[in-house]
């Protein structure tokens, strides 16, 4: 059954872009990218047991890496490939000190990391400062439709990597570490190295998505990567189900569609000007709180549990 569901999902995903009206194609691209970043967050939270409130930093680092390189004449493909590498290297350098921290300490540290990055980008003339980096070339993928397929291809690659990590020895070790670090250490799991690896890998996912984002939009500014964006990734990961493969896709889809629908509602004539932002804040907040309280493992595990129960009465 699982296989058929997967095939159906792939067929729908492949068939959808040409059928979507122009204005929804952009949402489709951004959804693929959001799910890609969320896959990393989900792995980090589900397998390393840590809350990161700074994942948008790596999204930004990937984007700026790709943007800066290509603005200075590097071929676009090389720029795209550099994005995850630069983000992962940054994650290793930052993670070495930061990953000594746990729980709320790490949450605040990652938040601090992002605030510092935003401030650096805002002041750095080399990065276009607060106005942003302009004139980033586009990828030769044939317009928005090409970006739609590219972003979901990137997501597919990231999900396959996640799946392999989950099934690997390192993945099992990390899952043990997420539940009990002492037990995992006693079992000879090199937690520190695994945690850093997952941190770097999740940063690479975000960086790759950021690279695509930079080419797709053609310009970047610090304002494109607010702290709230990092929190949105956490909400998507939690709502979908931490540490699952389908969770990030489901979580991102549910939230992006909801926000999109409310955005449409909020921009109706007669609605106050603040309606779209208020509605999206409310959606993120309520989904997060309700999920954590009443569906603590997220949508995907809850649904699969129910299916398994129905098949074996």
């Amino acid at each position: 059954m699982n296989r058929w569901l997967l095939v159906a999902a792939v067929v729908v995903t492949l068939a959808l872009p040409p059928l979507l009206p122009e204005r929804h194609l952009g949402t489709f691209v951004l959804l693929g990218l959001a799910a890609t970043v969320t896959a990393g967050v989900s792995m980090l939270m589900g397998y390393a047991g840590q809350v990161s409130l700074g994942q948008a930093s790596f999204y930004a680092i990937g984007g700026y890496a790709a943007g800066l390189l290509t603005v200075h004449g590097v071929p676009t493909l090389a720029g795209l490939l550099a994005a995850p590498v630069v983000a992962a290297v940054a994650a290793v350098l930052l993670g070495a000190p930061l990953l000594r921290l746990r729980g709320h300490h790490l949450a605040f540290a990652t938040l601090a990391m992002q605030l510092i990055l935003l401030s650096l980008l805002g002041r750095g003339d080399w990065a276009g400062g607060a106005i942003g980096l302009q004139g980033i070339p586009t990828l030769p993928v044939g317009g928005d439709l090409g970006y739609a397929y590219l972003s979901w291809a990137v997501l597919a690659v990231v999900l396959v990597i996640s799946r392999n990590i989950v099934a690997s020895r390192a993945g099992r070790g990390l899952r043990a570490a997420a539940t009990s670090e002492i037990a995992a250490a006693a079992g000879g799991v090199a937690i520190g190295r695994y945690r850093l690896t997952v941190f770097a890998l999740s940063a690479a996912f975000a960086g790759l998505a950021g690279g695509v984002y930079a080419f797709y939009l053609g310009y970047l500014s610090p304002g494109s990567f607010p702290v709230l964006l990092s929190i949105e990734f956490v909400v998507m990961a939690v709502v979908g189900g931490l540490g699952t493969i389908a969770g990030p896709v489901v979580g991102a889809t549910v939230i992006v569609l909801l926000v999109q629908a409310l955005n449409t509602l909020g921009t109706q004539p007669g609605m106050p000007g603040y309606a779209p932002s208020v509605l999206s804040y409310a959606v993120y907040a309520l989904l997060l709180v309700v999920t954590v309280l009443y569906l603590p493992r997220g949508i995907v595990p809850a649904v699969t549990d129910r299916l398994v129960k129905e098949r074996r009465p």
């Binding site: 956490v234 909400v235 993120y284 907040a285 997060l288 709180v289 309280l293």
Partner: peptide
Amino acid sequence: IITLGLGI
């Protein structure tokens, strides 16, 4: 996480 949500 709940307080984070309530802050938003």
